[in-house]
Design a binder for these strands. Structure first.
Length: 425
DNA sequence: CTGCGTAAG
DNA sequence: TTTTCTTACGCAG
């Protein structure tokens, strides 16, 4: 008997595991990866969790005691993680025809063979990723995405499973026991708000949600939660999705390392961010028709709250950094000189595939004729964002407000100069 | 169509 | 001195 099953493969403590893959001295030690600006912990090893550190813990509070605990912190190295993520998907793809990238460190994979073969199949994936990428993964297999997620949780929590769990391969009584003990909030798709509403009706465990009346759940929390109920019963409602080429919008936003409070500096920020948003636009071969430039003050200082934004509709879809950089300056008159802004961003909307509507010459700008925009982007793509740019974009020395990344590891897999050197003797 | 609430990692 | 960033979807208005 063969049944269509799904695996959810995820890397344990992905960012930390990427760091460890290239620096084995981190093995067995408490390790943290910090957010942009080295502000707070965003990922941690099991050893760091045991020290009581949680996501969001501010680094400046942990730093004084780090040495005493042997705690190591790394700045986030997204270039490395992104590349490792790509390799992770590639390996899974060699074991399955259907793969869906779910997040930077997770993927769903389809399995169409007999049930007894599912465990060995998952084990082969686990071993292949360990051998080729030095990354530890957990794999849950189930008849639906929700059950695969659940099995993945079990794979990590039950020591005997050693990272692989095939839900349908377990005893029915054992499955029931697990579900009756699992808090409903641990189910994929059930967040804190929904859990609270469910609890008010006596639904506090995964088993209770599975056995709840589907129509009742639909009325209480909508169709999405009803689908979750059906999926817990083994009825697939959430399909494996194709990679979506196309997104409706694109955001480039960053917090500043120190607040920005003058138009002069914000102009530099906008120039830099617009060009980086432009790079993302190009990497997806798209053009944007609308640009929103925005800034905001700290959420933790409600006294002087301000969140100015300016939305511009461009005459035609464009990916020209010159035009977008200029458009982003529209924020400046909206901001209050002297207010301490802590974060800003560029949102590009109304995206379309590049060249879908041929540019109407009437609106062509003088610099487009000379091809300055494409040239700038070409140089940035080839030689890095600090090679060339307009305004602040392209400066080699970091500006005062630019993000701090003081403990970043080398970009081992994407930069020749930063490749790992191995000496044999 | 848009903004908001909710969730995810 | 802190306290991430990004994407997606359903639903109400």
């Amino acid at each position: 008997m063969s049944k269509h099953l799904l695996a959810l493969v995820d890397v344990n403590s992905f960012y930390v595991s990427c760091e460890r893959a290239f620096d084995p001295t981190l093995e067995g030690r408490p390790v943290l990866v910090l957010s942009n600006n080295d502000g707070c912990a965003v990922a941690m090893s099991a050893e760091a969790k045991e020290l009581g550190i949680t996501v969001g813990a501010p680094w400046f509070k942990l730093a004084p005691n780090a040495q005493r605990h042997g705690l190591v912190a790394r700045s986030s190295n997204y270039e490395l993680y992104g590349d490792m993520s790509h390799r992770f998907l590639q390996v899974i793809g060699e074991h399955s025809h259907e793969v869906e990238k779910y997040s930077i460190d997770e993927a769903f994979a389809g399995y169409g063979g007999p049930l007894q073969g599912a465990g060995p199949w998952a084990e082969r994936i686990r071993r292949d990723i360990a051998e080729r990428l030095s990354l530890p993964v957990g794999i849950g297999v189930g008849a639906t995405k929700t059950l695969a997620k659940l099995a993945n949780l079990a794979a990590k929590r039950v020591p005997g499973m050693r990272g692989v769990c095939v839900w349908d391969g377990l005893d029915a009584e054992y499955r029931d026991w697990v579900m009756s003990r699992l808090p409903v909030q641990q189910i994929w798709g059930v967040g804190p708000r929904s859990a609270k509403k469910l609890a008010a009706h006596g639904v506090t465990t995964a088993a209770a949600l599975r056995d709840a009346d589907a129509q009742f759940v639909r009325r209480l929390l909508g169709v999405t939660m009803m689908r979750t109920v059906l999926e817990l019963r083994g009825q697939p409602c959430i399909q494996l999705e194709e990679e979506r080429e196309f997104r409706d919008s694109l955001v480039f936003s960053r917090s500043f390392s120190t607040p920005v409070s003058t138009r002069e500096i914000m102009a530099q920020v906008m120039a830099s961010y617009a060009q980086r948003a432009c790079t993302r636009l190009n990497s997806r071969s798209t053009e944007a028709k609308t640009l929103t430039a925005w800034a905001m003050t700290s959420q933790f200082n409600s006294a002087a709250e301000d969140s100015p934004s300016a939305t511009l509709s461009l005459p035609a879809p464009t990916n020209d950094p010159v035009l977008l950089t200029r458009a982003a300056q529209a924020l400046l008159p909206r901001m209050t000189e002297g207010t301490r802004y802590t974060k800003a961003g560029i949102t590009l909307t109304d995206l379309s595939p590049r060249g879908a509507q041929p540019a109407f010459d009437l609106f062509a700008e003088p610099q487009q004729d000379k091809g300055i925009g494409p040239l700038l982007q070409q140089v940035r793509e080839k030689s890095g964002t600090d090679a060339i740019g307009m305004g602040r974009g392209g400066m080699r020395t970091a500006a005062e407000w630019e993000m701090r990344r003081e403990m970043m590891s080398p970009r081992y897999t994407t930069r020749w100069q930063e490749m790992l050197e191995v000496h044999a003797r």
